[in-house]
Design a protein around this nucleic acid. Structure first.
Lengths: 337, 337
DNA sequence: CTGAAAGCGCTTACAG
DNA sequence: CTGAAAGCGCTTACAG
C-alpha cells in the first residue's frame, strides 16, 4: 500500500503543496472553497498529515506522557483509583487534541530525558508517586521541565501538584460518623512523613473530633498503606489492643476492604457492630456487601484540571498547585441514614 | 533550555554526525571505543535522539496504539478486566522497546487513517470490541492494516484475534460445580449471536453437563451482559421463574457481583444456599465477601501474546489467531473445598 | 571503521 | 490568497 503525501494531494487538487498544508491546518489564509476541495480530496484518499514530519518541522509533538508508578519487581495490581485517573486524563487530553503515551515506570528513571529531550512528549503526568519523599526531593531538579504530579498539595513544595483536599475529605468522613453518634472512631492509615496524603486525612479526622469536643486517641490509630492485606492486618492489631470502638475511618478503600474482611472474620458485623468509611471510591466500593460509604475523589474533574495545568506549563505560563474538592458518598457500611 | 542535537555531540566527540547516529543505534560498524566515548558524552549532555526526526527518516514510529471501546456518551466504568489487559500490553510493548498510545474510542472512527496513515502508530490493539458484530464486519476492509483484537476466536473469521478459550473456561467452571454435587446449575449471560464470547462459555457449560449425563435446561439460563446491574436483574428473573437451582455460573465477574447482591437481598446465602462462579478474575473478585471463585483469564500471558502477534503483523509475517488458556481460581463463593 | 551527502514529509517565513 | 524554497534532525546508501 502506497503512502499518500501532501504533494500528491496538491497535484490532485491543482494547487501547491504549501496550500494543501495550510488548508488541512485550517489556516485562514486559504480560500474557503479551495480549502473544502482539498479537504474532500484528502478524505477520499484517506490522506492524513504525517505526524513525524509535522512534529519535526513544528517542534511540537502534541503528546503527553502518563507515567504510572510500578513497584519494582512486583506484579501487583495498580490501585484502581489510578485507573480512573488515567481514563479521565486521557479523555481530557483527547478533548484538547493531545495524544497520550502510557507507561509504567520505576522511581529511578530519568523521565525528562526519556520523554521531553527525545521529543516524544511535551509534558509528563505522574500517577502514584504521591507518597515518595525521595521522588519529591528529586523533582526540585526538574524546575524547567513540564512535570505535573498527582499527589499531596503542600505549601512551598517544589514542583507542580494537583491533589485531593485530603484534610477536607478526612474532616467530612469523620464528621459524618460523629453525627451518627460514634465517639470512639478508629483511624487506619500511615501517618508518618512518608505519607503526606494520609497525614492530611488524619489531620481532617483530628479536626472533626475537636469540633465535637473530642480528642484523637493514639490507641485508636493503626498504620496501614493502601492495600487490602494491610487493612486486614491493621484491624487485627486494633482488636488485639482490646480498645473499644464503634467506627473505623480508613485512609483508602483498599484498606477498608481488608478491614471489613477482618472485622467479619472476627464475628463483627458491618455496619451492625462497626461502621466503616473509606477513601477514594474505587469501583469495588459499590460492588461489595455492604456497599462502602466513602470519600470520593473526583477523578473526572481532576483529569481535566491536570491536563489544563500541564498544557499551561508547556506553554510556559505560571501555574499553581491545585486542590480538588472531595465528596462524601453515603452507602451501606455505616447503616441506614 | 537549548536543545542538544547529534551534530553537537559529534563536535564534542570529534567525529561526524553519522558516526554519532551509528554509535547510539549500536551499529556494529563503529569502533567499540569510539562508541563508548560517544555514549558517555551523550549521557553527560542528556542527549536523546529526536524521535520525530528518527521516525520521519526511518519511516517507523516504534509505537502501537491501544484503543479501548467507550460506550458512546456514557460515563461508565471500563470493565476492570480490560485495565489488566492494558497494563500487561503496555509492559509487553515496553519490553520490545515500543511505546504505547492510549485512547478511548467509539465504534465509528476510522482508526487506520487516524493512526497508521498518520504514522502515529504502526499497529493497533483493540480492547472491548469483542461483542460488536458490526465492527467485525467492518474489519474485513482492514485486511492489510495491522489491527489485532482481543475477542472471540472463531474459525474462518476475518481479521486477527487473540482471546480466551471461552469454551474451555465454561467447561472448567461447570465441571467444578458438578463435582461439588450440584445438578441444577443456572447460567447467566447473553447467548445470542451478538456475544460470541458468552456463547463459547455457554457451550462449555453445556458440554460439561452432558459429560455428567445432564442436559442444559433453558429455564435455568437468563440473559445478562457484563455489568453488576444486569447480573442483579438476571437473578431476579431467575427467582421469579420459581425454578430450583443450587448454583449459578456467571459469564462475567461483574454479572456475578450483581447476582450475589441480588441473592443476598432475597435472603439466600452465598455459598450456604447458592454457589456462584464468575469469569474474568477482576480485582474486586478477591475483595468481596465471599471472595469469588472464578475463571481467570491470564492477562499477563495475553498481553505478551498480543504484542508478539501485532509486531509480527507489522513485519508482514503470516499470523494466526490464538487462544489463551484459562484457569479456575477456587475461593469462597462455592463453599470450602 | 568513518565521513559527506541525500532526503524522509512536512511547516512557515518570504515574496508576490 | 498562493507558490517556491529552506530546513526541522535524523538514517542510511555510497565512497573511501
Amino acid at each position: 500500500m502506497h503512502k499518500v503525501t501532501s504533494l500528491e494531494i496538491a497535484e490532485l487538487a491543482g494547487v501547491s503543496q504549501s496550500t494543501v498544508s495550510r488548508a488541512l491546518r485550517k489556516s485562514p489564509l486559504v480560500n474557503p472553497e479551495t480549502r473544502r476541495r482539498i479537504q474532500r480530496i484528502a478524505r477520499e484518499h484517506n490522506y492524513k498529515v504525517d505526524r513525524s514530519a509535522s512534529n519535526l518541522r513544528s517542534q511540537h509533538s502534541r503528546t503527553i506522557a502518563m507515567l504510572v508508578h510500578e513497584e519494582s519487581g512486583m506484579d501487583s495490581d495498580i490501585n484502581p483509583f489510578f485507573v480512573s485517573m488515567l481514563a479521565s486524563i486521557t479523555r481530557a487530553a483527547a478533548a484538547r487534541n493531545y495524544d497520550v503515551l502510557l507507561s509504567f515506570q520505576q522511581l529511578s528513571k530519568n523521565w525528562i530525558a526519556d520523554y521531553e529531550n527525545s521529543n516524544k512528549a511535551e509534558g509528563i503526568v505522574l500517577l502514584g508517586y504521591g507518597g515518595y519523599t525521595d521522588y519529591i526531593r528529586k523533582i526540585e531538579l526538574l524546575d524547567n521541565a513540564h512535570v505535573l504530579t498527582w499527589g499531596p498539595v503542600i505549601d512551598g513544595q517544589p514542583g507542580h501538584f494537583v491533589g485531593c483536599d485530603n484534610r477536607r475529605g478526612g474532616y467530612m468522613a469523620t464528621r459524618y460518623l460523629l453525627k451518627l453518634g460514634h465517639t470512639r472512631i478508629a483511624f487506619l492509615g500511615d501517618i508518618s512523613d512518608d505519607c503526606p496524603e494520609f497525614q492530611g486525612r488524619y489531620s481532617g479526622y483530628c479536626n472533626a473530633l475537636s469540633r465535637f469536643g473530642l480528642r484523637a486517641d493514639p490507641a485508636l490509630q493503626a498504620s496501614s498503606h493502601s492495600s487490602t492485606h494491610s487493612g486486614h492486618l491493621a484491624v487485627r492489631e486494633l482488636l488485639s489492643r482490646k480498645e473499644d470502638f464503634s467506627a473505623v475511618f480508613c485512609s483508602s478503600d483498599l484498606t477498608a476492604l481488608g478491614a471489613i474482611h477482618a472485622l467479619q472474620e472476627n464475628g463483627l458485623k458491618v455496619p451492625g457492630d462497626i461502621s466503616v468509611v473509606g477513601f477514594d471510591d474505587i469501583p469495588s466500593a459499590t460492588h461489595m456487601s455492604p456497599a462502602l460509604t466513602t470519600v470520593r475523589q473526583n477523578t473526572a474533574k481532576a483529569g481535566e484540571v491536570m491536563v489544563d495545568i500541564l498544557l499551561r506549563l508547556i506553554r510556559g505560563e505560571y501555574v499553581q498547585s491545585q486542590l480538588i474538592e472531595p465528596e462524601l458518598l453515603v452507602r451501606e457500611s455505616c447503616g441506614s441514614d
